[in-house]
Write a protein that binds this DNA or RNA. Structure first.
Lengths: 199, 199
DNA sequence: GTCTATAACCAGATAGAC
DNA sequence: GTCTATCTGGTTATAGAC
């Protein structure tokens, strides 16, 4: 995510990642061979192995960025252990929304390659641990009996709505950044959380 | 979905599908080999080929049921070509919700194997055609300029909320049918659609 | 830093006996 | 309807030259 990427000539490594991102998203991780990636980049298959230990490390590198985002968003989950402060939750979701909107491509990749990403830790234990923890936190939240079913469903629905709105729209519209989408989704969140709409 | 399945001894074919459903969901379609499926069922790999032409046909058979459901739900989409009648939409989503809740396992499978299902038509053109049409209808709806952005976002968010609520909850809670979940999600939909909550 | 060549492997699928 | 045995093909990954 250094800004230099778009100014300098992109390094081979970056070009590989860009090609992999597109192919993994279009065809799926498992159905994309390294041969295809190398052909698109214009290097040989073996050259990929200079830059990445394995195919999984490519996926790993791509998903890494999104993990930081999820981390920030989900860090607050353990704090929810009773009636939810929806005004505060709106702030969290708003920040999450920003991140998702400005990293749409990666979130589409993740949405479409869930199983591949989950089974990723075999060669990358650190990554797996981070992922497992996120999953566990969410599972615990969803099943937490100290929180009313209503509140859990609302938060869960909010997450689904944000993802569907931000990611689902992207697929239909290509790579457009739809004007006003963020405001509409914030409005959705307020309705979901029982908060007043601003003038 | 014949009721007999649970009363009679399940046929080999059904046992294969059940094992495949579990394995495909847990590990992903691509990472599950026919050897694993055959071992779990207690037959040999070759025996699978008596019941199914290919691995893809297994997935195809599993997803078939859900397609009918999506079909009914999305059939109404082309009718949306202006301001949306949210009271009517609530009925559609309510029916969809029923179907998703009573077929959770298959929807989890679909959520986690999107790319595999999309690339499925190579050996099954009829299936592909149905899928493509569903995708197209949705894409057209999402991008339809005759419908206000607000309304499109609301419908999109509603779909995401229903799926997240019904499917996401399932993974956390195993195969439980959470009491009251449906009512909570209907309530979410009413808020999303600007409809009054019933007494 | 990129190539050629090849290793090593395992998947999906088929043929034909029983 | 299920088995044994086998084929074919593409995949990831490595060794070592340039």
């Amino acid at each position: 995510m250094k800004q230099a990427e778009e100014l300098e000539a992109p390094s081979t490594r970056e070009r590989i990642l860009a090609a992999a991102l597109d192919l993994f998203t279009e065809q799926g991780f498992d159905k994309t061979s390294l041969r295809e990636v190398s052909e698109r980049v214009g290097v040989t298959k073996a050259a990929l192995y200079y830059h990445f230990r394995s195919k999984e490390e490519m996926l790993s590198s791509l998903v890494e960025r999104a993990h930081g985002i999820g981390h920030h968003g989900f860090d607050v989950l353990p704090l929810f252990n009773g009636p939810i402060d929806f005004a505060a939750a709106l702030g969290t979701f708003s920040a999450l929304l920003d991140q998702v909107l400005s990293n749409r491509k990666i979130f589409v990749l993740m949405e479409r390659n869930r199983t591949a990403i989950e089974g990723l830790g075999d060669h990358d234990p650190a990554h797996q641990e981070e992922h497992r923890q996120l999953e566990r936190q969410w599972a615990e939240f969803v099943a937490n009996p100290k929180i009313s079913l209503r509140d859990r469903v609302r938060v869960s629905a909010a997450l689904g709505a944000v993802m569907a709105g931000a990611v689902g729209t992207t697929r239909g519209l290509g790579t457009d950044a739809p004007e006003g989408l963020k405001d509409e989704l914030l409005s959705v969140l307020r309705d979901l959380f029982g908060l007043a709409q601003p003038a």
